[in-house]
Computed example of a mutant assay.
Amino acid sequence: MTTTIETMISKLAAWLARHSIDVLRVSLGLVFVAFGTLKFFPGVSPAEALSVATLEKLSLGMLSGYAAQVVIAGMEVFIGLTLVTGKLLRTGLVVMAGALAGFFAPYVLFFTNLFPGAPTLEAQYIFKDIVLAAAAMVIGARALGARLVPAHERMERVHDGRERVAA
Rank of each mutant, 00 (worst) to 15 (best):
A105I: 10
A166Y: 00
N113Y: 12
L81H: 09
E48Y: 01
G74N: 09
V31Y: 11
G86R: 07
F103D: 12
F35Y: 12
F110D: 10
V108P: 09
S27L: 15
L114T: 02
G92F: 13
T2K: 09
L28G: 11
A167Q: 07
T2E: 13
Q69R: 15
A67P: 06
T7E: 06
L148K: 02
L24G: 07
S27Q: 15
T37G: 06
A105Q: 14
V44D: 06
E48A: 10
M8K: 15
E76R: 12
R142F: 00
L88F: 15
V158G: 05
Y66M: 15
K39I: 04
E153N: 12
A14Q: 11
Y107L: 15
L12W: 09
V77P: 05
I5R: 02
A167G: 05
P150K: 01
A14S: 13
R90M: 10
A13M: 08
L63D: 06
L63C: 11
A13T: 10
L114S: 05
L12F: 10
L24N: 08
M62F: 14
L93H: 10
A143I: 01
A143R: 00
I21L: 15
L50R: 08
R25P: 12
V23S: 08
G92V: 08
L81G: 01
P150H: 03
